[in-house]
Amino acid sequence: MQFTSESVETLVEQFATLPTIGRKTAQRLTNHVLKMPRDEVEALAQALIDVKEQVMQCSTCFVVTDQDPCPICASHRRDRSTICVVEESSDLLAIERTGDYNGLYHVLGGVISPLDGVGPDDLRIRELAQRIDPSFPGASDASDASDEDAPASSNGTAANPPSDAGPSGADPSGSESADTASSTETSDASEDETPVKEVILAVNPNVEGDTTAYYIAQLLEPFDVTLTRIARGLPIGGDLEYADEATLARALEGRGAV
């Protein structure tokens, strides 16, 4: 049944397009909006517009944020030697609520799922490797291309003059001081960068999550980094009697000392 008002019917149809929202739930939400004061409706509409206009992705960890870099990546109080890999931004918030993790994050944007047409290139796995090692293939493509496209002289050599050679009588002190300042800035920047020592895989314990974790483990194997995955087993307050075999097996594998 459709409403007698086209505006109301349009709102019902828009609510019904949201995940897990059927038409009956959409009608209840629409009736609630009709009873809301105008200022609350305007605040709701403005919040929806602000989400599309102001929210972006952090260029480092790819979490949704209002500023780039996000507060987590910009904080100097975080342990920058540890990166926790999650599937979505909602998983990051779940871990943050525990208050037991103080490192950085990396949001993949999903998991490898061939049935859904999602492969490794559709996720931010390469960006993760580049955070661990900036020389990972893909980060130096531009520099390689610039070297290949460098102009050559008539004898076939690159037309780049030697850095320590100059015209007769020229004073090289200015270039030397510039080189010294540049090297000092580079050394200071390198000292500020903390190498990644551990990568924690916090993906869901299902087939797609296991496939993604295995792919990342194979990709990061050559790097000097410790790769771990969050434990899987019985939940707090759970009963052994009602646990499935796979969960019990994982709990036994991940047992720890008392």
Rank of each mutant, 00 (worst) to 15 (best):
211 T>V: 05
223 F>A: 12
191 E>M: 07
173 S>M: 11
178 A>R: 14
226 T>E: 15
221 E>V: 06
230 I>F: 10
228 T>D: 03
219 L>E: 04
181 A>V: 00
197 K>S: 14
195 P>N: 08
189 A>S: 13
229 R>H: 09
205 P>A: 10
177 S>V: 10
209 G>C: 11
167 P>D: 15
179 D>I: 12
214 Y>I: 12
206 N>G: 14
168 S>V: 13
226 T>P: 02
209 G>R: 03
200 I>M: 00
228 T>N: 00
183 S>D: 14
174 G>T: 15
176 E>K: 13
219 L>K: 10
234 L>A: 03
179 D>T: 05
172 P>E: 13
233 G>P: 02
227 L>R: 11
224 D>R: 04
216 I>T: 06
194 T>E: 10
171 D>F: 12
188 D>C: 01
172 P>L: 05
205 P>S: 02
190 S>R: 15
168 S>W: 01
239 D>F: 11
208 E>Y: 05
202 A>Y: 04
175 S>T: 13
198 E>W: 07
236 I>C: 05
184 T>K: 13
204 N>S: 15
208 E>Q: 14
191 E>Q: 11
223 F>R: 03
218 Q>H: 13
230 I>T: 15
191 E>Y: 04
191 E>W: 07
203 V>L: 15
204 N>I: 02
236 I>L: 07
170 A>G: 14
228 T>R: 05
210 D>H: 10
